[in-house]
């Protein structure tokens, strides 16, 4: 093959690869919550389920389930998870029956046509804490607590995001993060103020022109210079919102859910707020995709098989084409 054409081929290959990776990269870059109105960028954590060989940590899952069951489940459902699924966390049949029996399930209608409540069974899904969305909203200042089954997949960042939100309340935040958020908001306010001031000056000119012409007009109000933001109160969040560094707009409807020692871990681990947040994020990652371990295990086998198969195809191709080159 002549040199120029080889160059042409390579350049075509390169441009297509760039085109595709560029397109893919951009599609992804746009998705994280860092987009307009997002919260403070949250740090990446390291998890046992990261990577190609990642698996869930059974002890962390059980602790995380305990946090969900004893703290979160008062307001948040887990509608796609059944009690029987808890076997994957390492619980035996008796334990699962006991967990299920703690919950009341609405069943029916019975022979008289009445709905009735009964103890949960392993085959039941986790019952929702509220009978419907309206009831949920009514008990929570109008905000419906979202179901947590898919939370780890429905937010950019997954487990990192869940952990960040739980650790994003004022008490748990490092002073430096708070200060950065205040500075950010101060800068935003000043930018808005400058724009408002320019608009005010234009209006003032128009107003003065009118007055000089003898017309009546209302004098525009000069915008007030904003004070620098120095506390959470200065952020001007709505009354129903709680400050959270990592939630979009810094105001979240959920009050701080974890304070430390909210549960007493069965395995004796100290229930610090970090520990509980980490474990419940771990548990919710499992809940969002209980088949993740199976998926990764199969993936390794499939790809190893395909590499061998492709190598064989390549060898055969070389042999078949040998007399042409």
């Amino acid at each position: 093959m002549p040199k120029s054409s080889r160059y042409g081929r390579k350049a075509l290959a390169a441009s297509l690869v760039i085109a595709l990776s560029g397109g893919l990269g951009m599609a992804l870059e746009s998705s994280p919550a860092a987009a307009a109105g997002g919260g403070f960028p949250f740090p990446e954590q390291s998890w046992s389920f990261d990577g190609v060989f990642g698996t869930f940590d059974r002890a962390a899952l059980q602790r995380g389930f305990q946090v969900y069951n004893e703290a979160c489940s008062a307001c948040h459902g887990l509608e796609y998870v059944a009690f029987r699924n808890l076997a994957a966390l390492g619980y035996n049949d008796e334990q699962i029956k006991a967990f299920a029996a703690e919950k009341l399930i609405v069943d029916g209608p019975d022979d008289e046509g009445e709905m009735f409540e009964r103890e949960g069974r392993p085959s039941d899904l986790f019952p929702s804490p509220f009978p419907n969305a309206q009831a949920a909203a009514a008990s929570n200042n109008g905000a419906v607590p979202p179901d947590l089954s898919l939370m780890a997949k429905a937010r950019a960042g997954g487990a990192d995001y869940i952990y960040a939100i739980l650790m994003g309340y004022q008490d748990s935040l490092p002073e430096s993060v708070l200060q950065e958020i205040f500075d950010l908001r101060t800068a935003e306010n000043e930018k808005k103020y400058k724009a408002a001031l320019e608009e005010y000056e234009d209006r003032l000119d128009a107003y003065q022109d009118k007055i000089e012409d003898g017309q009546t007009a209302t004098e525009p109000v000069k915008p007030e210079k904003p004070e620098p933001v120095t506390s959470v109160e200065d952020l001007g969040l709505p009354d129903t919102a709680h400050f959270n560094a990592y939630f979009a707009g810094f105001g979240i409807a959920m009050g701080q859910p974890l304070y430390g020692d909210d549960v007493e871990f069965a395995d004796g681990t100290e229930a610090t707020i970090e520990q509980q947040a980490r474990d419940v994020a771990h548990f919710l990652t499992w809940a969002a995709e209980p088949t993740m371990e199976e998926r990764k295990r199969s993936g390794i086998k499939v790809i190893l098989f395909l590499i061998v198969l492709t190598a064989l195809f390549y060898a055969v191709k070389r042999k078949v084409w040998a007399d042409l080159h």
Binding site: V52, R295, K296, S298, G299, I300, V302, I303, L306, I307, L309, T310, F313, Y314, V316, K317, V320, W321
Partner: peptide
Amino acid sequence: VKDLFGLGVFLIVLSAFVFFAP
């Protein structure tokens, strides 16, 4: 045979996404 080799490469890349970054 050349297409089969290409198919193998294609399936490896597709599998990388399906199993590890779905």
